[in-house]
């Protein structure tokens, strides 16, 4: 039970004078679920944690190290953000899964494992044959699952997930949540998740902590 990610007094102004102020902690082998009405800055908070947006104030620690001491590239391989809208590049599904492994920093640490990729795809109810399919022809739900598999293959220590089941039907949604549970259990990893359907998370067989961004919004 170690603290993976800790953020203190993170604040940022965003659209139309709204602002967020949030503090929280992600413990290993658990999920931190961010709750809040739409427009309360849930996605903004995830993007700050991915270092895509700069906060106006506050500090973030990864395993006790202040984020300013960790180079951004290294940070993003450890704390990996998966956007709500799946981003798919030109080429086949296999090419999309391999794309991150063409980057220098990833090549230094891992190599692409086709067997693992196929296994993960099957776990989220996608056939192996999808690997040769042009990625641009995927449906929204298929693309979201491919993006999730691509993220898991990178073996980050923290996943920042923005509505990972938004594009999925109930079967695929259950399959994705099942895979995430398997990925998390006993792994010393953690997930920060924004979900439109908190009931999905309550059913999971793992500890879920809640961060209520709505109330944080009122306080600020």
């Amino acid at each position: 039970m170690t603290s993976l990610l800790e953020f203190q007094q993170l604040s940022r102004q965003f659209e139309q004078g709204k602002s967020i102020r949030a503090s929280g902690q992600l413990i290993s082998d658990t999920m931190l679920a961010i709750r809040g009405v739409s427009g309360s800055g849930k996605s903004t908070l995830l993007k700050i944690l991915a270092r895509l947006l700069r906060p106006d104030g506050g500090e973030v620690f990864f395993k006790g190290r202040n984020w300013v001491d960790i180079p951004p590239q290294e940070w993003r391989t450890r704390v990996h953000y998966v956007a709500q809208k799946p981003i798919i590049f030109e080429g086949s599904v296999a090419a999309n899964l391999q794309l991150p492994f063409t980057l220098k920093i990833i090549q230094q640490e891992h190599s692409f494992r086709m067997e693992e990729a196929s296994r993960l795809l099957e776990t989220v109810l996608l056939p192996r044959s999808i690997l040769t399919q042009p990625a641009q022809t995927l449906s929204g739900g298929e693309a979201a699952r491919v993006a999730m598999v691509r993220a898991l293959l990178l073996e980050p220590q923290v996943l920042l997930l923005d509505e990972p089941t938004a594009y999925l039907d109930s079967d695929s949604s259950r399959a994705v949540m099942g895979l995430l549970t398997e990925w998390l259990e006993g792994s010393s990893r953690g997930i920060v998740i924004v979900s439109h359907n908190p009931d999905d998370l309550k059913e999971l067989p793992l500890p879920v902590h809640w961060l209520d961004l709505e109330s944080e919004l009122r306080k600020s």
Binding site: A50, Q73, T77, A83, L99, P100, I106
Partner: peptide
């Protein structure tokens, strides 16, 4: 912008 940010999230350098 989305693609560039996705690549950054993979760990890409700005140039990559």
């Amino acid at each position: 912008v989305d693609e560039v940010e996705q690549l950054l999230c993979f760990g890409a350098s700005p140039w990559e």
